[in-house]
Amino acid sequence: MDSLVRIAPGALVIGRPLPWDVFDADGNVLLRQGYVIQTESQLEHLFERGRFKPRKMSPYKKAEFEDNRHRNPFADYAELLLTLETTLNAITSREESAQKRLLGLSRMLERTCMEAPDASLALVHLYSVNPNIHEQILFYGILCQFTARQFGLDEKRTRILTAAALAANLALVPVADKLNSSNIILSQQQRAVIEKHPDRSIRALEAAGIDNKLLLNIIAQHHEYADGSGYPDNLSGSDILPEAEILALAERYVAMITKRAYRNRMDITEARQMIANLADGKFRPAIPRALLEVLGKYPPGVLVRLDNNEVGVVTRRANKSRGPFVQAIFNPRGHRYNGTFERDTSLLDYMIRGPEEPEIMPSMDFSLLWGFRS
């Protein structure tokens, strides 16, 4: 099939779910999105035989970001990432369409989060094992969407914040993956690159004709802290925009749950405690509180062990009357179910015992787990 292309080395990683369906050269499905590569031999086999369907990017059209399809975050994941990449490229290339692309992607992400909130949050947790820089940026945008609304920002400010989250690390894109995979202490030069990235990102945006004052100020301040310990201007207290603090917190949270070469990822209990601690000085307390309320004790996409010893993935957050809902994927003896079974964890037999952090994530058909057609 002409539309299928080979998978580039480095695009797939052992231990994390496939970001798209994988086909053979004749167009037959080899593996569905959500399958987790277990061994080096499987990885080599996919690089040798595997193909995927890239989305063909056309010149910018307003309608491109305003279609009426119901959003399925899992089916749209690869498209969101590719749209993000082309949007950032449009900014660095100073294309006339750069601002429209950025705001359009912000609207696309907003709509995805509003139509499928639990599934959108699940993306952050299911793909946080070893994400690349574009995935991390997408996660920042998702978390900003939810946290801003919980904090009480209106729709317009939330949309600008989301656009800022998608562009704030533009200057780090060429080096971020290398920095994250390094297990040695950063050099002075690398630290300088990191500390200058807000200003460099702003200059790139301005050169591309993006002049929204709020957006640029969010980016300028997103490494400032309420206690005055941030950079570049050592701002403190109410001098810092709440949008900037929300973005900073989203970045901190993603870093906590992400595996790096020099440390393991935190489980959700540890990450929640760290977020709670940040309310004491570095952030205005209402912002960490808003993120914790969005996540709940066990956010969608997190694996948990139940009191009956089943293991499953959280698919829906708790509400006032019921606990989180879990799709059980392993039986009490540790064997994989043929299918999944929904568990209401407010019931005594299915209460959550705690988070589960397997060395290798189990393979799952994400669309079906969240009730979408695969």
Rank of each mutant, 00 (worst) to 15 (best):
A122P: 03
E115Y: 06
Y140E: 04
V129R: 12
H134G: 02
I137F: 10
F139L: 05
H134N: 12
L80S: 12
Y127Q: 05
T83D: 15
M114E: 13
A78L: 14
L109G: 03
H125I: 10
E135V: 02
S97R: 09
R94W: 13
P131C: 05
N130D: 13
Y77G: 05
E96W: 10
S106H: 08
V124N: 00
M108K: 14
L126R: 10
F139H: 08
L81H: 12
S120H: 01
L103Y: 12
E85C: 09
V124M: 04
S97N: 12
R111G: 07
S97H: 10
T92P: 00
E110V: 08
K100S: 15
T86Q: 13
G104N: 07
L123G: 00
E85H: 14
R111F: 05
Q99H: 12
K100D: 15
M114I: 08
T112A: 11
E115H: 07
A116S: 14
E79S: 14
G104Y: 03
P117Y: 03
L84S: 06
L103A: 14
A98S: 15
R111V: 08
E135D: 05
E79L: 14
A116R: 04
L109P: 02
L88V: 01
A90W: 07
A119N: 02
I91Q: 02
D118P: 07
M108G: 10
R107Q: 14
E79P: 07
I137R: 01
V129L: 13
L88M: 09
A122M: 11
T112K: 06
E85T: 11
T83Q: 14
E115G: 08
Y140H: 11
A78C: 09
Q136Y: 03
N130I: 04
L109F: 04
Y140Q: 03
L105Y: 07
M114Y: 08
N130P: 06
E96V: 12
N89M: 12
L80K: 09
S120L: 09
A90I: 10
T83M: 15
Q136V: 07
E135C: 01
A119K: 03
L109W: 00
R107I: 01
E85W: 12
L80R: 13
R94K: 15
E79A: 14
R107Y: 13
L103T: 04
A78H: 08
A78D: 10
L88S: 02
A78V: 12
V129T: 14
L82P: 01
R111S: 07
Y127I: 03
Q136M: 11
N89K: 13
Y140A: 06
A116F: 07
I91P: 00
S128Q: 04
S106P: 02
S93M: 11
Y77M: 07
N132W: 05
L80M: 15
T83N: 15
L138P: 01
F139W: 04
V124H: 00
S128Y: 01
N89D: 13
I91T: 06
Q99I: 07
T86A: 14
T87S: 14
Q99Y: 06
T92L: 11
L109A: 06
R94G: 10
I91K: 03
L138V: 08
A98Q: 04
P117N: 04
Y127S: 01
S120T: 10
R111K: 11
V124K: 00
